[in-house]
């Protein structure tokens, strides 16, 4: 078990630095800094507490400061043969949580929003608030951790989180084919960890025991020629989130695209048009923002859902 006992001290200092007035934004590694709009000028920025606070592999949970790099977290978890659903893109744990974008291999890793068990954050009034629970299963009260995922830090300043971990499969293999219907893959094999399609090539990630990976490879080979792949597709700039069926109509994504089949995430040359939020939902969201941040001091300028 790993335990850094200073996380509570760090959070106290974090709360004191945030205080209870004036606009504030928490800075991760700025890998998705422009999401949700530009930060208002002259806003003070802070970094979140960092380090792994507690990790017991047999509990399949890890408590980690939000300023920790995802790569550092995963390096530590890998020593015990585990990983999380967070994407590893150079950013911090807190950044990944408040951005809320899933790992490219969502089918194998699970959704990020389901992996966040507990969140401690510093509120707009400077209080340290804890929500969720430390166990993998918990329905004690309202589920605020879900709200924090994808909130862009507009409801609270995230300090630390408890994440569910998962075992790293003993074997994994990327395969590629230029001669297969990508939509046939899920009908052919059981729960691939990722299916990516760029209009010509289809990449499939198989994970499990060596024999299981071999058998799934054989099943794929029965429908098309698949080769092991060492090179992954280059992902175009813009991220889309669409109904998985819309992937059958890729023209909208631009001249180049990579689509996650069975999921609905697309990286396209074109930007995704603004997605509408129903007026009734907007009204609830507006009340929520006002209730959590009455003076509008948290990450001003950013609005979840705004590109």
């Amino acid at each position: 078990m790993i335990r850094h006992t200073d996380i509570d001290v760090q959070i106290q200092e974090f709360a004191a630095a945030i205080g209870d007035r004036e606009p504030i934004a928490i800075e991760g590694n700025r890998t998705r800094w422009s999401l949700g709009g530009d930060l208002q000028p002259d806003v003070r920025t802070l970094t979140a507490p960092s380090g792994i606070a507690e990790y017991t592999p047999a509990e399949m949970t890890v408590q980690v400061g939000c300023g920790t790099l995802v790569s550092e977290l995963h390096d530590e978890l890998a020593k015990a043969g585990q990983r999380t659903a967070l994407p590893e893109r150079g950013g911090t744990v807190g950044g990944a949580v408040v951005v809320g974008q899933n790992h490219m291999c969502l089918l194998g890793r699970g959704r990020l929003r389901d992996s966040v068990l507990n969140v401690r954050y510093v509120s707009a009034e400077g209080q340290i608030v804890s929500c969720g629970g430390p166990t993998v299963k918990n329905v004690s009260g309202f589920d605020l951790p879900r709200l924090m995922v994808g909130s862009l830090g507009t409801l609270g300043n995230l300090a630390d989180v408890i994440l569910r971990t998962n075992p790293i499969p003993t074997h994994s293999r990327w395969l590629v084919s230029d001669d297969v219907d990508p939509f046939a893959i899920q009908k052919t094999i059981y729960r691939p960890s990722s299916i990516l399609w760029d209009g010509t090539f289809t990449w499939v990630l198989l994970e499990g025991s060596e024999q299981a990976v071999n058998e799934e490879h054989d099943k794929l080979s029965a429908i098309a020629a698949f080769e092991p792949s060492t090179e992954m597709p280059v992902l175009p700039e813009h991220r889309w989130s669409v109904h998985p069926n819309d992937l059958r109509f890729p023209g909208q994504f631009g001249e180049s695209f990579v689509a996650s089949i069975g999921v609905g995430t697309v990286w396209g040359a074109n930007a995704q048009p603004k997605r509408n939020i129903e007026p009734g939902v907007e009204r609830v969201a507006s009340r929520l923002k006002n209730n959590f941040d009455p003076t509008g001091r948290l990450n001003p300028g950013r609005v979840p859902g705004r590109i």
Binding site: Q101, F142, S151, L155, S241, V281
Partner: peptide, 15 residues
């Protein structure tokens, strides 16, 4: 039905 719906996850809060 898309993987990352826009805005706050009110669905998750409702469940």
């Amino acid at each position: 039905l898309e993987p990352e719906p826009p805005g706050y996850d009110l669905r998750g809060a409702f469940v």
